[in-house]
Computed example of a mutant assay.
Amino acid sequence: MRRLACLLTAVLTAVPAIGGCGIEQTGVRDLGGPPVISYSPTWVTVYLLRDGRLEPARIPVGSDSAKNIVDTLFRAGKQPPKPGLTSALNDFSHHDTETTRYYDEAQRNDPAGNLGYRLSVIISGEGEISREGLAQITCTIRQNKQESIWSIEVTRLFPGPPKTWGEHTCFEFRNLAAEGVRLPP
């Protein structure tokens, strides 16, 4: 038995070029680094306040969905990207966003008619939202979703009974723009 084991060991060491499954062995080859998923953030413009006036700030987001844009606006107010910027939204939290079709009755059956959307921004928090806060939400959405979102409606869901501040476009807040800032429509 010992002799058979020695013979088998001698045969296996005599044929080093062939592996156990009949495939020839090769040396280690470097084929480059591992595959990497590169991430390139999307940049959005949010409107914060400097001395009560709307000022744009560019912030990276994971996606440019309306929900992510509004979440970014609320976060940016708590950690402004530039010194001196503030937010009228710090006492509120973004709860949800809902998009609904918005169209003129005259265009309802016209397939070539331009259809847009109304974005309902649902917030939570105590008290009344200021005109500056409405402007921040409205102009931030209009800046980043100009073509598809025609109006923005802001509603507080809780605490207390739901309250809406109506539909808005950024144009109505043009007097809140900082000097040299051009707001979206």
Score class of each variant (00 low, 15 high):
residue 19 G to M: 07
residue 75 R to Y: 06
residue 12 L to Q: 13
residue 98 E to T: 01
residue 10 A to V: 11
residue 72 T to C: 09
residue 15 V to I: 15
residue 94 H to V: 03
residue 125 G to R: 00
residue 79 Q to C: 02
residue 90 N to T: 15
residue 135 A to F: 13
residue 20 G to D: 15
residue 107 Q to I: 03
residue 45 T to P: 04
residue 147 E to W: 06
residue 149 I to N: 09
residue 161 P to M: 05
residue 170 C to V: 10
residue 29 R to E: 15
residue 142 R to I: 06
residue 144 N to D: 14
residue 3 R to L: 10
residue 51 D to M: 07
residue 154 V to A: 14
residue 91 D to W: 01
residue 58 R to K: 12
residue 142 R to L: 14
residue 168 H to I: 05
residue 134 L to E: 13
residue 17 A to W: 11
residue 184 P to M: 05
residue 95 H to N: 15
residue 28 V to T: 11
residue 107 Q to N: 13
residue 62 G to H: 04
residue 78 K to A: 14
residue 162 P to M: 07
residue 181 V to D: 14
residue 97 T to G: 03
residue 178 A to M: 00
residue 67 K to A: 15
residue 150 W to Q: 04
residue 94 H to P: 06
residue 5 A to I: 02
residue 53 R to P: 06
residue 134 L to Q: 13
residue 173 F to M: 10
residue 23 I to Y: 11
residue 142 R to V: 01
residue 127 G to Y: 10
residue 111 P to G: 08
residue 41 P to L: 12
residue 102 Y to F: 14
residue 156 R to W: 05
residue 176 L to D: 02
residue 159 P to A: 00
residue 121 V to Y: 09
residue 28 V to F: 13
residue 138 T to M: 03
residue 151 S to L: 12
residue 60 P to G: 02
residue 46 V to Q: 08
residue 149 I to Y: 08
residue 99 T to P: 07
residue 46 V to F: 04
residue 117 Y to Q: 11
residue 108 R to Q: 13
residue 97 T to M: 08
residue 175 N to T: 02
residue 64 D to N: 14
residue 157 L to Y: 02
residue 117 Y to I: 04
residue 8 L to R: 05
residue 35 P to A: 08
residue 168 H to G: 12
residue 92 F to H: 09
residue 143 Q to S: 15
residue 120 S to W: 06
residue 148 S to H: 01
residue 26 T to Y: 06
residue 2 R to L: 06
residue 28 V to G: 04
residue 52 G to F: 04
residue 27 G to M: 10
residue 161 P to I: 06
residue 154 V to W: 02
residue 145 K to Q: 14
residue 167 E to T: 13
residue 36 V to R: 09
residue 121 V to M: 12
residue 57 A to T: 05
residue 19 G to Q: 14
residue 125 G to S: 08
residue 142 R to Q: 05
residue 19 G to K: 03
residue 10 A to E: 15
residue 137 I to T: 03
residue 43 W to C: 00
residue 137 I to F: 04
residue 21 C to T: 15
residue 174 R to A: 00
residue 110 D to H: 01
residue 138 T to I: 08
residue 59 I to S: 10
residue 37 I to C: 12
residue 161 P to W: 05
residue 36 V to C: 06
residue 111 P to R: 00
residue 180 G to M: 06
residue 21 C to E: 14
residue 7 L to S: 07
residue 121 V to R: 05
residue 95 H to W: 13
residue 149 I to K: 05
residue 149 I to H: 10
residue 15 V to L: 15
residue 143 Q to H: 07
residue 151 S to F: 09
residue 80 P to S: 07
residue 143 Q to P: 07
residue 184 P to W: 03
residue 185 P to Y: 10
residue 153 E to C: 00
residue 30 D to T: 01
residue 98 E to Y: 00
residue 50 R to V: 02
residue 47 Y to A: 13
residue 23 I to L: 12
residue 135 A to C: 14
residue 61 V to R: 01
residue 106 A to Q: 12
